[in-house]
Amino acid sequence: MALITCEALSLGYEGGTVVSDLSFTVEKGDYLCIIGENGSGKSTLIRALLGLKEVSRGKIRYGDGFSRQGIGYLPQQTLVQRDFPATVTEIVCTGFLNRKRFSFFYSEKEKKEAADIMDKLSVSSYKEKSYKALSGGQQQRVLLARALCAAKDLLLLDEPTVGLDPLMSATLYRVIQQLNREGLTIIMVTHDMEAALRYASHILHLHKDTSFFGTKEEYDHCQVCAQFLDEGETPHD
């Protein structure tokens, strides 16, 4: 059974449906990119997959030994966080709060794990710095490190490269690609079509009633999708 199966899924807010009748599956080890115009429901879908948003119709099923405790999530940054007084280490360690814990302190094992993750993402050099003193790219990596402390099976990312310069974005994409190669399942919302086509194994293109879901190769040869891409090039926001 697939890691995630969505059947005839509809999502909406009061007074409107954003996503309707959507079906797709995510297998272990997949790298799924969700693309589409602003307002097509990309972030809403991510929030539904995380259980942060209720489903209006249809079903999301989790399988393949999947547990809620194995999800990591990289949300979009909020305004509150910009000037938040907390060190990198403090923030990264909150990723461990998905496990049952009764101790006030993090265990040695968790500290070691956090240190390894911070090394991997090159965050260690500023781990005692205050979050608000970091650049946008550094902050994003810190939040990714936090997500990895929580993620055992699945990592969801909501526009991880917004506000980053091209160099930073490229580094972040490489890190995520590496994690995927190590076996982590990735679901990423992005505006960056080029990156989606380069890194993803599967593409979900949300577009009103004619959403596309398939492998990247299928997407490359899909006529309707070419049309989406043309439409996408006209400025809409």
Partner: peptide
């Protein structure tokens, strides 16, 4: 620090 993340991890 982050309500969305916290809720996502339970």
């Amino acid at each position: 620090f982050d309500e969305s993340f916290s809720k996502a991890i339970g």
